[in-house]
């Protein structure tokens, strides 16, 4: 745990975890991992890149982002219609949205894709299947602490 990080925010219990993941099984696994670890923040799921963008940019007739809430986005790279890379690109281009912390989910650590993510400004990624330790590491990298910050110390989950 690095206490000397510049941007260190506490995510309060009202923060929402956004998961953009097209595969139902993967989403279930992530959800269970987080819940078992005691993360009780609200979790929202998007089935593809289009839905994610519609939410974030407040378009379309689905769910809409609320302006004064904190969000953490877990972004799967391979999604139909609009893939994760493009979503990341669009987010980082928008002045409001680029502050949202993003964690990329990949099936392999393919160097080409990872370099692309780096270029776009995201250096945090987790290789699936999502292990809890990887998740907390990623979150630490961003400098966020979840309300249940003691849990990493209590290692016993996976």
């Amino acid at each position: 745990m690095k206490w000397g990080q510049v941007e260190r925010k506490r995510m309060n219990k009202e923060g929402v975890i956004l998961i953009a993941e097209d595969d139902e099984g993967h989403f279930e696994l992530i959800k269970r991992t987080l819940q078992r670890a005691g993360v009780c923040n609200e979790i929202l799921r998007f089935a593809d890149g289009q839905e994610t963008l519609d939410f974030l940019f407040i378009k379309g007739d689905g769910l809409k982002r609320e302006p004064n809430r904190e969000y953490l986005l877990l972004l799967d790279i391979r999604m139909p219609k609009i893939d994760g890379i493009e979503v990341l690109e669009k987010i980082k281009q928008d002045p409001n949205l680029k502050k949202i912390p993003v964690v990329m989910l990949t099936t392999t650590d393919d160097p080409v894709t990872i370099e692309r993510c780096h270029d776009l400004g995201c250096s945090v990624y987790i290789v699936k299947p999502v292990e809890y330790e990887d998740f907390t590491d990623a979150v630490h990298k961003i400098g966020l602490f979840l309300s249940v910050v003691e849990i990493p110390q209590v290692s016993g989950f996976k």
């Binding site: 595969d23 099984g25 993967h26 696994l29 391979r78 099936t107 392999t108 699936k128 299947p129």
Partner: peptide
């Protein structure tokens, strides 16, 4: 092929 494999492992 990886994607279903992740599910099989996870579940």
């Amino acid at each position: 092929l990886r994607a279903p494999l992740v599910n099989i492992q996870g579940f």
